[in-house]
Amino acid sequence: MAAAAAAGAGPEMVRGQVFDVGPRYTNLSYIGEGAYGMVCSAYDNVNKVRVAIKKISPFEHQTYCQRTLREIKILLRFRHENIIGINDIIRAPTIEQMKDVYIVQDLMETDLYKLLKTQHLSNDHICYFLYQILRGLKYIHSANVLHRDLKPSNLLLNTTCDLKICDFGLARVADPDHDHTGFLTEYVATRWYRAPEIMLNSKGYTKSIDIWSVGCILAEMLSNRPIFPGKHYLDQLNHILGILGSPSQEDLNCIINLKARNYLLSLPHKNKVPWNRLFPNADSKALDLLDKMLTFNPHKRIEVEQALAHPYLEQYYDPSDEPIAEAPFKFDMELDDLPKEKLKELIFEETARFQPGYRS
């Protein structure tokens, strides 16, 4: 834990890192770190609560700039109880001085990944967590956004079992017609939660990839272990087919990539493993919904509104309290091709509203 900075004593240090967030945020305490930044909790002297502050230093890398800009653009436009918001952003007053960006968010005690390492969940908890994931996802999908990296560590939890989806750095506007060349190379989302079509096709992607990830998360809540822990690309596919069985001819016809289709045709026939054999203690309604989410063919996979209306979630289902976005989200430009200098300018502009004396 960093010592509390005395008023006016300059930035606090946390594990050798400068955290320049005073005077409003003090009493910093280390939480963890990701690929390009550290997260601390801090005391907000204005709202009198502890908050989470993520320090991001992305400006050396085009990919990190892209992810940072995506996350900020999306989260500043989203407003939903099951999606983490941005409360404040701290950065230098000029673009030349801006080396880091500090993002202030609600402090959540833990995440689903940490929880599943230590606790076996009751059916009631599984049901409530799944409902909140789908409630947040309904809003995301209504904005025409794909999260693309749903996994237990991106689901934040607090002691009252509130759940918030975080990390929109890989999110995209849904565009089933656009052929994202190089899709697989830039697709760094965790393999275990990846839909089979991501490994088999490169053309376009749809909201059904997020539903697949939610199915993987439900299976993990039922058993405290990942359902498809593939060691590499082909191993991942083999794990999936080992449980779902061989795809039907109709399902194979959806695979545009001939090499991928021929690979699947070359494999020995596998039978589907019954879900109640894998999860003998699970609620039968939970397994019915799991089956509809972990469907090989993305066109037959359940959609988020149908999933919310499934009998497993009937005690929570309330369409009048499951809000959607006001308007579909649009990125003005494809960020993939922009140089990091341009992305830095866009991050600077996007964060201006939090600067003292800002006038829109």
Rank of each mutant, 00 (worst) to 15 (best):
I89N: 03
Y102F: 01
I198L: 04
D336W: 13
L121E: 04
I86V: 15
G204P: 02
R261Y: 07
N276M: 14
K259R: 05
K344P: 07
L69H: 15
P247S: 05
S208E: 10
S142L: 05
L218C: 06
L218D: 02
L150K: 05
I84L: 07
A4Q: 06
I240M: 05
N47Y: 00
I302T: 11
E345T: 14
D288C: 14
H125E: 02
P196C: 01
W275T: 05
A35Y: 06
L146E: 06
G16W: 15
A42F: 15
R301P: 03
F78V: 03
L287M: 00
L115V: 09
M199L: 00
L163K: 09
G230S: 02
K207R: 03
S202Q: 02
Y25K: 05
K151I: 06
I95F: 00
E345L: 12
K54G: 03
A327S: 05
E186G: 06
E197P: 03
R359F: 13
K330Y: 15
V49E: 00
M333A: 11
L76R: 13
D337M: 12
Q17Y: 13
S246E: 13
L237H: 03
R50C: 12
C166Y: 00
T63S: 01
I89V: 05
H178T: 05
G169S: 04
M333S: 11
T94Y: 13
A195R: 02
N123C: 08
L241N: 12
H239S: 08
E71F: 07
I211P: 04
Y316G: 14
G136D: 07
P152A: 05
R172L: 00
H80I: 11
K330S: 08
L313D: 04
A92T: 03
D20P: 05
S213V: 04
C127S: 00
Q306Y: 15
K207I: 10
L157N: 04
I53V: 03
F129A: 12
L267A: 11
G10K: 08
G10I: 09
L234E: 06
K292D: 09
K340P: 08
I227L: 05
D20N: 01
R24V: 10
G85M: 12
I256G: 12
A260E: 07
S202G: 05
E12D: 00
A260V: 08
L313W: 07
P152K: 03
D44E: 00
F168T: 10
D162V: 04
I240R: 04
V18T: 15
L134N: 04
I84H: 04
E326D: 00
I103E: 05
R70C: 01
N144R: 05
A5H: 11
Q62S: 10
K292M: 00
E96V: 04
D336V: 01
I243Y: 14
F296I: 00
P280S: 03
F129R: 05
G169Y: 09
H180W: 07
F168D: 08
E322Q: 14
K73I: 00
A325Q: 12
G85A: 09
L335I: 07
E220A: 01
H80A: 12
Y205V: 01
M221S: 08
I84D: 06
L267M: 00
L75P: 14
P152Q: 02
N45I: 01
R261P: 03
E96Y: 14
Q315T: 10
L289G: 05
S320R: 13
G215N: 02
P93F: 15
H310M: 10
E314Y: 15
L107D: 02
R50Y: 13
P298A: 12
L137I: 12
T295E: 08
T110P: 01
V21K: 10
L170M: 01
P196F: 04
R277V: 14
R301D: 04
G357N: 15
L121T: 10
L264G: 04
L258S: 11
